[in-house]
Design a protein around this nucleic acid. Structure first.
Lengths: 314, 314
DNA sequence: TCCATTATGCTCAGGATAAGTATAATACGA
DNA sequence: TCGTATTATACTTATCCTGAGCATAATGGA
């Protein structure tokens, strides 16, 4: 490695690295995340940990009693501006996305599953655009845009608001979860922004979290919403056997919007990701559905080929 | 944050975090990366740095004299197994992808641009599949697959080799850069694997790098190859004015494969990402081409909508 | 003048996609 | 027992996207 001028006089450049998990499950058509009070499962990366992932697994299992299955890295954040002191050692958060099922949870821990739309009420468009966007978010963002001094900044702000929240007849893009959160933060419309010593009134509903955990959660949701469209990751969240409608409901729960039923089936079937078990679903209203299971053998191929998701236009 | 059992007795869980940059440019149809001897530009994250990105920018500018433009985070690695001692403090590498142009480089630094295919000769398929895949890579991987004890592992290995390298009449997937590197590492066919105390002979050509920098480079190439298909990032690598063929050659250089010319133009034009400057290219063979410039105004919209790339089947 | 070379316009077939129509199978209440 | 609500599943249709190829235009040089 090449030498370079040192930026600080300090000789030890030690930082503390936290491992943070966004642990997701879908139960009865509702997406859930694992929380401990107002925090995500997390803990420091320690000497004893052989790797980042094993460290994360150790912490999550200790705190929630839940063994981690599928895991992928999300993003690494440094806390900027939280502590005003530039001399204080840095704290880094390395975040991960984990996918499981809600069962097999140890009940004696402080860990709980909670619906992720409690933290992001504006993200659930399954029953149409939620009213709070037109009633609260849009007007507040318009006011924020107007409050800029120069006309060009005003324009840029309102364009940004319109794009991220699908205002002015623009299409809603469900993947922009993080952009929407950051916009609300910058506009000081959520508790985290007020807490971090910005002016404002936290006008937009939705549960806040400790430090930057809600930002990390937004990152995880955005990643998952993007990924279900080209990788068969939904199956990590499904039980061993399921009907096609249950699969569809899970996808819709994650994407926060509805899907064309017939086309969804066609897509799933032509991908050859599932096979019939031969059994039928019991205890249903209406005509009983065939049960399917995931074809694990195809994953190796499909992990490469890609999977898509047909979102409705309306 | 919830309490949890400590995994180690040590009370200080300090780690050292390195910032590593994969800095990319494309000059005359060749993709280049910034190197300092056999390393990527890098340096420790220090107290004085306000954020990870500013720290990275400081290091890269100090080491290369090159100001960083577009930057995005890639991945965070921890060195596992390099030092066998589990007690030694961890070293974390937070890697970034940066895009620029080769000009405006300070020439007195030790930093140099080098072609990225020198590090990954098997990744350049612009003139068809490179011969070294059939001559060296494929046979060595087959031998590695056969060397497994159980039949099931043998099958899994050869299937993995076939998928990642497009063997047995499978299609080449240019995005699997990291998977290919990791496969060669596991099969002990490259110098890094031999160095890290595995058996083997490093039979596959290609320049190695310090520590895990070549793995980081593979991560960066893979990310860039995926991203040019749905975000207009190519323009960060182009001069202010360019012909459509120059743009195409840059895309091909990055993707490592050719593109259908007419369809490429159709796609670019219908996306409305560029506009004519009115001038024509000078000093050409054949019919002179129109010069185009990137429409910066569209980025805000397009950053959302997505861009695609028409790869040829052949 | 002919040819090599690059630019650019246009067509066409096949496949994917969104959306709608129609029919089948079940439970339940009047 | 007969509708009716509800869900499952099979087809149809129109449109758009994509890969691929053909044709023509403009330039310089032999």
């Amino acid at each position: 490695m090449a030498k370079a001028p040192r930026k600080a006089e300090t000789s030890i450049d030690a930082t503390t690295a936290d491992l943070v998990a966004v642990l997701v499950a879908v139960t009865e058509g509702e997406p859930k995340i694992m929380t401990i009070a107002t925090a995500l499962p997390s803990g420091p990366f320690q000497f004893g940990h052989r790797s980042l992932q094993t460290g994360l697994r150790a912490w999550v299992e200790a705190q929630t009693g839940h063994p981690l299955g599928y895991v992928e890295q999300l993003y690494t954040f440094a806390d900027h501006g939280r502590t005003g002191d530039a001399r204080a050692p840095h704290r880094i958060s390395i975040s991960y996305l984990g996918l499981t099922r809600e069962d097999q949870v140890r009940e004696d821990s402080q860990a709980h599953w909670s619906g992720w739309y409690e933290y992001f009420p504006w993200e659930d468009h399954r029953a149409g655009t939620p009213p709070l966007i037109a009633k609260i978010v849009a007007p507040k963002l318009r006011a924020w845009a107007k409050s800029a001094e120069s006309t060009s900044v005003q324009k840029a702000r309102s364009q940004r608001a319109a794009i991220t929240f699908g205002l002015d007849d623009r299409a809603w893009n469900e993947e922009l979860v993080l952009q929407r959160y950051e916009l609300l933060y910058e506009a000081s419309l959520i508790p985290e922004a007020v807490r971090d010593k910005r002016a404002g009134e936290a006008a937009v509903p939705g549960r806040a979290m400790i430090s930057d955990h809600r930002r990390i959660l937004a990152t995880g949701i955005a990643r998952l919403r993007a990924k279900i469209k080209y990788r068969p990751v939904v199956f990590e969240l499904m039980p061993a056997e399921f009907t096609l409608l249950q699969l569809q409901r899970s996808v819709e729960a994650l994407a926060g919007r509805t899907v064309h039923k017939q086309n969804f089936r066609r897509l799933i079937e032509q991908q050859e990701l599932v096979e019939e078990t031969g059994a039928m679903a019991a205890e249903t209203v209406g005509r009983p559905a065939k049960l399917f299971r995931f074809r694990h053998g195809v994953v190796a191929e499909r992990a490469v080929a890609g999977t898509k998701l047909p979102l409705s236009r309306s």
